[in-house]
Amino acid sequence: MAEIEVNGGIVVYEFVGPDDGDVVVLTPGGRFSKDFPGVREFAVALAEGGKRVLMWDRPNCGASDIQLFGRSESHMRADTLAVMVDELVGGPVAAFGGSGGARDSIVFAIEYPHLVSSLALWSIVGGTFSTVSLAGVYSTAELRTVRAAGIEGILELEGKAGSWSDLVKVNPRNRERLLALGPLNFEEVMTRWFDAYIPKPNEAIPGVADWEFGGIDVPTLIIRGGENDHDHPKRTSFAVHCLIKGSRLIEPPWPEDAWEQAQLAMNRGEGSIFGPWLKAAPTLLDHLNRLVL
C-alpha cells in the first residue's frame, strides 16, 4: 500500500500484478474501499492474467482523505485519478469500473481522453428509480444533517454505501479536514453534487449529459445490466452502448438477479455485493488481449 498527494489530499493506492503488465485501473462502486470484500479478488484475477492493476481508495472512500470539490463527486474523482495516472504510470490506462465505478470511469474518459486506452463498464446506474436512490445514498442525509447539526453532525453520520463517520475512524485526518471545510462550504458542495442525481431527460447516467459521450473514442466493452437489477437497469446499459460509438455490448456472465441475490447474501453475512463481478474477469482479460493482437 502506498500514498500520493493529489489536490491537497492523500490518496491510498497499490498495484497488483507484474510490473511489466498493461495497467488497468479498477474502480468499484459506492463509497467502498479497495479492501471491500470482492474487490481484491477481482484485481488478483486480472493480475493473474498478466495485467498490472491499480487499486485505489477514491477520495471519500477507505483510508484516503476526504475531498469535496468539482462539478460532481465523479468529476472530483476523475480529476484525482488523472493526476495519479500521470505521475504513477505516465501514459494511458485501461479504465474498468462497475456501478459508481462505471460512472467514475466514464467521466475520467470524457475529461482526460489522453489517459485512457480502453474502457470496460458494468452495473451502470441510470433511470429514475436508480438515480433518485443515489441522491438518498450520497446527498440527502448529508444536506439534512449539516443544516440541522453542522459539521459535527456529519462527523457522526453513517450510511449504507460507506459513511463519513467510518472515514473519520479509518483516517483521523478526515476529522480536521471536515472541520476546516465548515458547514457552509460542505453544504455548498453537497448541493452541487446533489444536482447530479436529479433525473434529466438528456442524461443517461447521473451528472453526465448525453452529448459528452461523444468525447469517448476508445475501445469500450459494456456488460448488459441485469433483467431484474433495478439499481443498474438493463435499459441504461443499452443507452450507454448507443452513446459510445463503436462500443461492444455483451450479455452478463452472472445471473439476471445477481446483484439482488448478492445483497441478500451480504445481509446474511455471506459474500459481498461485488462477488459476482469476479465472473467477468476472463471476459475483461479477453477484451484487453484483443486490443494487443
Rank of each mutant, 00 (worst) to 15 (best):
G8K: 05
V53S: 06
G21M: 03
V292M: 13
E3Q: 09
P172Q: 04
I110K: 07
V53D: 00
R31C: 10
W254K: 01
V168E: 03
A45I: 05
A239E: 11
L284Y: 06
E14D: 12
V53G: 06
E3S: 08
P219I: 02
Y197Q: 05
F213I: 14
A45G: 05
V23K: 10
R235L: 11
T191Q: 06
L243S: 10
P18T: 05
G214T: 11
A280W: 04
L134K: 03
A102F: 08
R192Q: 11
F238M: 03
T220P: 01
A95S: 11
R147P: 06
F32L: 15
V146Q: 09
V146L: 10
G271Y: 04
N185A: 05
H75Q: 11
V24I: 15
V170R: 15
D210G: 00
N202D: 15
R248F: 09
W56V: 15
G153D: 06
N7M: 13
W211D: 15
T220I: 03
S64A: 03
A239D: 13
P255D: 00
S117E: 13
S99T: 08
V89G: 03
E73K: 11
P233S: 03
R175Q: 07
V11R: 05
E142N: 14
E152N: 14
D57F: 11
G225Q: 08
P253L: 00
F213Y: 15
L181Y: 02
G21P: 08
S118L: 04
N174H: 00
D20H: 13
K234Q: 12
V218N: 03
I106A: 07
N60C: 12
P253F: 03
A78F: 10
R144S: 14
P219S: 13
A262N: 11
G153L: 09
V85E: 00
S33R: 09
G91S: 02
G214F: 07
P28K: 07
G101N: 08
D20K: 13
V85K: 09
I273R: 12
T236G: 00
T128G: 00
V24S: 02
G150A: 09
D286I: 01
E227D: 13
G207N: 09
H287A: 09
L285V: 10
A47D: 02
P113A: 04
L54S: 02
F36L: 02
V44A: 10
R248S: 14
